[in-house]
């Protein structure tokens, strides 16, 4: 899933300081699962903003709505009526959702309430970790199911580098060295010989370096 975290409330408040009425839109997708932009978080944020603004003697009226997904125009369309009389829309979705909302309501001031961090999953309730680097050319079959693109802080394909010690990365004692994990896993699998192959330079054109990407499935395009 996409993991996102809320921006500091002050930052969000500043974005709508000149508004009298705002619509806060949550998303029932990834950000609900990672507890940053679901229905509950949307309501908490709206309450906090209202209180803050009352104390500043500049009351704010809020409306809340949680879309099934903000990355799908049909679910955003459900709030067409709600947006009419608001001065701004605060989206509690990932960066994708914010853009879909902004695109649909092109005459509205649409602002992000979250910082979209990474794609990953939770290790325990309340802790999420990055797992995929979105490089567009998966190498997990070569690395024992552990992504070196994003879990190695240097994206090294022929690791581990000289900064790996006691299983940890040089950047922090709290960060596992992805290559130490890869080594252990390949050892368990009896496939250490695979690590002796020199992995060639990566073709980053399938990653963000190739410009904005698009995925197409001809057989399901309607029309």
């Amino acid at each position: 899933m996409i993991v996102a975290q809320q921006k500091p409330l002050q930052e969000i408040a500043d974005m709508v300081s000149d508004c009298k009425k705002v619509l806060l839109v949550g998303c029932a997708g990834c950000v609900t699962v990672c507890l940053s932009g679901g229905e509950k978080e949307t309501e908490v944020m709206s309450s906090a903003l209202r209180i803050k603004r009352r104390l500043e003697e500049n009351p704010l009226t809020t409306v809340t709505f949680t879309a099934t997904r903000q990355c799908d125009p049909e679910y955003i369309a459900e709030m067409d009526e709600m947006v009419k009389d608001v001065d701004a829309i605060i989206s509690l979705a990932c960066g994708v959702g914010v853009q879909y909302v902004a695109e649909r309501y092109s005459d509205k001031w649409v602002v992000p309430a979250l910082n979209t961090n990474f794609i990953g999953g939770s290790t325990v309730h309340g802790i999420w970790e990055e797992k995929c680097g979105l490089c567009g050319d998966c190498v997990l079959h070569k690395t024992g199911g552990i992504c070196p693109i994003i879990r190695c802080s240097k994206s090294i394909l022929n690791g581990p580098c000289g900064g790996s010690q006691y299983g940890k990365c040089e950047i922090s004692k709290d960060t596992d060295c992805a290559w130490a994990l890869i080594y252990e896993r390949m050892k368990t699998l009896g496939k250490l010989n695979k690590l002796m192959e020199i992995q060639p330079p990566k073709d980053w054109s399938t990653s963000r370096d190739g410009g904005p990407r698009r995925a197409t499935r001809e057989d399901v395009i309607i029309g």
Partner: peptide, 24 residues
């Protein structure tokens, strides 16, 4: 060589490259 991560230097907010690794 790979190089030390920029976290330790005087520009910890910079972006790193690592287009190729030291082996490559």
């Amino acid at each position: 060589l790979s190089g030390d991560h920029q976290k330790f230097g005087n520009h910890p907010t910079s972006k790193n490259v690592y287009d190729v690794d030291s082996m490559q």
